[in-house]
Amino acid sequence: MPQSSDRLKESASQTAGPYVHIGLMPNFSGIAGVFGTDLGAIMVDEKTRGERIDVKMRVFDGADQPLTDALVEIWQADADGFYNSPSEPRAVADPNFTGWGRLATDMTTGECVFRTIKPGRVPFGDGRLMAPHITVWIVARGINIGLHTRMYFGDETTANTEDPVLAMIEDRTRVPTLIAPRDGDIYTFDIHLQGEHETVFLDI
C-alpha cells in the first residue's frame, strides 16, 4: 500500500429532497414565526451600489418540465468586482451588499426572480479578467449532489469572448447555455439538467 494522505473524507452529499423549503425557507413553506425572515430572500437595499437588475431563473428536467420544488442559491461580486467574504484578499466589498441570494422556484410556474445588481469583473487565477458572472448552485429532490454553474450576461459580448472559463468549454455549441439574454432590466437564465440543451455544470 502506498502512503496515504491522512486527509479526512468530505461528508457524502445526499439529496435535499422535496421538503428542502422547511429548513432553508420556512416562511416561504408556511412555517411562520420560527425564523424572522428567510435568509437570502432580499439581496439589495437602497444603499447598495450598482445597477439594479432582475435575474429570472427556471430549472428544466429531462422532459423539459420546469422544477417546481428546486432551491437556487446565487453568489456574486459587488458592482466593483469584490466579494463580501473574509476570503476576499483584495479589498473590502460594498457593506450594503452580501452578494448571496437564495430562492425557491415557484411551486406552480417553476420561476424564481432574484432582485440584485450587476456584478463587476473579477480576475481569474492568472490575473486575466473574467466576464461579469453569477455563481449558481441548485438543489432539489432527485439531485444527489448540488449542481454548480455560472450565469453570464447576454449584453457583455466582448467580456464573454475574453472570459477564461467560457474559453475552456470544448464543445463551443454549449457556451450559450451559460449566457442569459437581457430584455430591459431582466435577464432570463434557463437551466437544463439534461437533454439537447444541457447546461454546462462545473466541478469546482
Binding site: 428536467d61 429531462g62 422532459a63 422544477l67 453568489w75 456574486q76 461580486a77 466579494y83 463580501n84 467574504s85 476570503s87 476576499e88 452580501t98 452578494g99 448571496w100 473579477v122 480576475p123 481569474f124 487565477g125 473574467m130 458572472h133 455563481t135 432539489a140 429532490r141 432527485g142 439531485i143 444527489n144 449542481l147 454548480h148 455560472r150 472559463v165 475552456m168 468549454i169 454549449r174 439538467l193 439534461q194 444541457e198 447546461t199 454546462v200 455544470f201 462545473l202 466541478d203 469546482i204
Partner: peptide, 22 residues
C-alpha cells in the same frame, strides 16, 4: 433519472468566485 446531468462536468480550479463565500 430526469434530473441528472449526463454530460461531463467542466473541471475548474477554484477562482475567487468559488474560494469566497458568504
Amino acid at each position: 433519472v430526469l434530473r441528472s446531468p449526463r454530460k461531463a462536468l467542466l473541471s475548474l480550479d477554484g477562482t475567487l468566485s468559488e474560494i469566497t463565500g458568504p
